[in-house]
Simulated assay, not measured.
Amino acid sequence: MSSQASRYAHQLLDARAHSKLIPLISQSEPLSVDDAYDIAYSIRNIRVAQGEQPIGRKIGFSVHKEWSRYGVTDDARVPIWAPVYDTTVRFAEDNHGTQSLAGAVQPRIEPEIVFKLGKTPAPDASLDELADCLEWMAHGFEIVACPFANWEFTVADSIAAFGLHGTLIIGEPHVLSSATKHHLPQILAGASVSLSCNTETSSVLRAAGFCNDEMDSPLHALWHLHQLLQKQSQFRQLQAGEIITTGTWTDALPIKPGQTWITAFSGVTLPGLTVSFV
Rank of each mutant, 00 (worst) to 15 (best):
G190T: 13
T199C: 10
K256P: 14
D75C: 13
V193Q: 05
D34L: 12
R77M: 11
P23G: 02
F153A: 00
L205E: 11
V89A: 04
K116I: 01
F61A: 15
G258N: 12
H226P: 09
K181T: 12
Y41M: 07
T260Q: 10
L168R: 00
P83G: 00
E135F: 15
A102T: 14
I169F: 09
T180R: 09
N95T: 03
S19F: 05
D251Q: 13
L222C: 11
R47G: 02
E29K: 03
V275C: 10
P271G: 01
K181G: 12
I169W: 07
Y41T: 01
A36S: 02
V144L: 06
A179V: 13
Y37V: 00
V78Q: 08
F162R: 00
G241E: 03
S158N: 06
Y8Q: 02
W67N: 00
E66Y: 09
F265E: 02
A252W: 14
G60Y: 07
T199V: 13
A92S: 05
L238M: 04
G60E: 06
T154K: 06
D75Q: 15
C211G: 11
V275G: 07
P111H: 10
H10M: 11
Q232L: 11
M137S: 07
G267N: 05
G272N: 05
R16T: 07
P83W: 00
Q237I: 10
L228I: 14
H182V: 13
Q11P: 06
N198E: 14
H226E: 03
P173Q: 04
P254A: 06
G51W: 12
I39V: 02
Q106F: 11
P218R: 04
P79D: 04
E135W: 14
S158A: 14
G51N: 08
A15Q: 00
D86M: 01
D74H: 15
S28W: 05
D216E: 15
G166I: 07
A160E: 04
F162H: 07
I25P: 07
Q239T: 11
A102K: 10
